[in-house]
């Protein structure tokens, strides 16, 4: 389910079944021109990826709006803000929180997050619409889905 009117209508009626939250963590920046394309591309891929995971597991997963932050900002500060997010989320009976990101900086601060961090290495460039990218994303979705299911 997503943060959308129709989905939330269904959520309110069936919330005991939806116990998992996914928060995509996406950096954004204009300072470093060399990496600007890479960052934008990873943001696109992560959005597609989380959408696909949500599609497979709609009935038990709530996809939260993306969390964007400035790439150069201090991730310790960001994790404080994120704790606020998780606190807000826990006002509903959610049991599992997953953070999905391509930004390796989060890996070191995993302990500061109230939830499970899934750092995905890899995808730096390529063509989003190519057949290879489709298979890569499909495989990723399958594996992440399996991982999430192992927590249930």
């Amino acid at each position: 389910m997503k943060w959308k009117k129709e989905d939330l209508n269904q959520y309110v009626q069936a919330k005991e079944y939806i116990d998992t939250v996914i928060i995509p963590l996406i950096p954004f920046q204009f300072t470093d021109e060399q990496n600007i394309e890479k960052n934008a591309f990873q943001s696109e891929v992560l959005s597609i990826l989380t959408n696909e995971i949500e599609k497979e597991l709609t009935g038990r997963v709530m996809l939260i709006p993306n969390y964007y932050y400035i790439k150069s900002s201090d991730l310790d500060d960001e994790s404080t803000i994120l704790r606020g997010w998780t606190e807000e989320i826990k006002k509903q009976p959610f049991k599992h929180v997953f953070f999905l990101t391509f930004d390796s900086g989060w890996k070191k601060r995993e302990g500061k997050l109230d939830g499970t961090l899934l750092w995905l290495p890899g995808v730096k460039s390529g063509d989003l619409h190519s057949a290879e990218m489709h298979t890569v994303i499909k495989d990723q979705v399958e594996q992440i889905g399996e991982l999430i299911r192992s927590y249930w």
Partner: peptide
């Protein structure tokens, strides 16, 4: 599509 809540 699962007729319960729409999973795959």
């Amino acid at each position: 599509i699962c007729t319960h809540l729409g999973c795959f």
